[in-house]
Design a binder for these strands. Sequence first.
DNA 1: CTGAAAGCGCTTACAG
DNA 2: CTGAAAGCGCTTACAG
Lengths: 354, 354
Amino acid sequence: MGIENGKIRIKDVAKKAGVSTGTVDRVLHNRGEVKEETRKKVIDIIREMGYTPNLIAKSLASKKLYRFAVIIPDANNYTPYWEKPLQGVLKAAEEIKDFNSIVDVHKFKGSDENSFRKVYAEVLKCNPDGVVFNPKHKKASLDFVKLMDEERIPYVYLDVDLASGNNIAFFGQNARQSGQAAARLISNIIPNGSEILIAKLAGKKLVSHHITLREKGFIDFFKNSNNCDCKFKSIDIDLSINTEPSLSLKKIFGEHHNIKAVFVPNSRVYRVAAFLKENNLQRTICLGYDLIQPNVEYLNLGVIDFLIGQKPEDQGFNSIMALFNHLVLQKKVNKLNYSQIDIIIKENIAYYNL
Amino acid sequence: MGIENGKIRIKDVAKKAGVSTGTVDRVLHNRGEVKEETRKKVIDIIREMGYTPNLIAKSLASKKLYRFAVIIPDANNYTPYWEKPLQGVLKAAEEIKDFNSIVDVHKFKGSDENSFRKVYAEVLKCNPDGVVFNPKHKKASLDFVKLMDEERIPYVYLDVDLASGNNIAFFGQNARQSGQAAARLISNIIPNGSEILIAKLAGKKLVSHHITLREKGFIDFFKNSNNCDCKFKSIDIDLSINTEPSLSLKKIFGEHHNIKAVFVPNSRVYRVAAFLKENNLQRTICLGYDLIQPNVEYLNLGVIDFLIGQKPEDQGFNSIMALFNHLVLQKKVNKLNYSQIDIIIKENIAYYNL
DNA sequence: CTGAAAGCGCTTACAG
DNA sequence: CTGAAAGCGCTTACAG
């Protein structure tokens, strides 16, 4: 090893500068206590020799333990989706554990803002070095962000972009654009003049901003394309009512006989698929979001025609890695990170659903 | 650090076993020279304490330098595609360089088997620790593989699966399945009874196995689905002839007036798109492979309707990482690794073409 | 303000 | 067959 290998070590820099390795380390990390003159000299030599630190050695020698906290909704019947980002988070945790870094996962009840507040208060008590969280509750999230800014704790938004705050990164989908892609797929297939049902299924009367944007993108596509003159029927369905979504869907399909496609702007599309299957409406084009198990089943049955995926595992994984790169490796990280808008059909799902 | 931290070190194992760290290291790496009795004892204690090596320390201490060789076609006018796997390879190289591992890239002329043979002979002279290569030339590749088996050099297939040999992994697409996905997308759109043109464009009369499989998958889909009774017209076009593909396409479209879709089972689809645009045939559904620049442009113009992507960067990246995991980290690696079959349209390409 | 030394967990000759 | 010691490139008290 050493210079002859092309790899410059601190020792090499120190020697050339006529100082000790300790001094080089001090200027490397701006730890002060160095005469300006020698600092300059060392800096110059670092540049000149093209020194780059050996991350391996750095990590081994460092006593600092990095703790990252993750705050996401608890996966449940309405939102099995959140299992996926969690998987990614845990994979990242495994990958960075030899680098003195650990990840703590904290869950809150997705629909309950107070639960989120309680969890973030706990997290702050632990003094994490960095935080990844899902800011679905806007107001509470803004309060949280303010506290982290005061403590100079870096944070990453997952799934939803708060669009304010000093987050080092955001990982999620461009919701509006995904609606446009959905629209293209449907408009390709259905005849001119068809009716399209937009069914927003929610656990409790909570239709998030996300969902609204997907719908907006969807409708805008048709508005801006002159080759499909379709009519929309948009409804909200409250799944906490026992008889839903059957009741509402039956009514709609009874009243509108020219519905050629259903667009469900979230992961509850399997509930619509069940209805379509029971009522022999499989020929209706059905498109929804996310590769959760029941959706995959209806896709394979041919009831759901398209699913839009967004690689939630990757989002979880990359969120942690962003924190790690920022804090531990001190690499620059991109702030705005839109996931791919994956188009999934029966014929390609095998290679996504891993 | 140490036990109180939950992390067991070699030192801890040695102490409990009443031996030195050197001895533990010997049993850990099966380096022999250990009495069977002490070997057993150490093994037991390793299990009991749940020792796992610290990869960071391992890498820092190790003097062994790993050299990986990559052999891929040179990107050129006919195959700009190969830029993409190369990008992934270089990214992986960057990622593992602090782990005493370097990657050498060797290129051969894609269409020239002898060029491939020459390159692999050179590579063997360098005694690489592992090889990633594209076995498009079957016979030469089998010879190469045999030599590597003799030298016990592990190797990975990229893009094409030789389907024999002791490769530790393969990264590429399930070609037949991608043809099926393509067929589904087209059959969704075109009316019953349409004609479909399958245009196989090649640089020289070389239609690879790959391409044949894609075509097969495409046709089989229609055969097996009862709701689309379409006719196929399949042609080979030799792009090394100046007047092609115009000449052939003009003839076909002149003779067949009911062609509603063109399927191009490789990345040269942009040549067909150019023809469609010039001849005002944009309404013909056009589907091809790979996100190379000219294809992306015609997709954005609305001439190409779908592109099938396969994440070639990831394939390159993962090939190297497979070698690295196998040799350096001694992790198990999956042998058969099919890439995703990405469906790309104008509305989602922005998040793929990075 | 600066340097010498110990240590991170592992590997690698070397001595016996 | 086994152990003691040096070393990988860095960080971290500590002494001056």
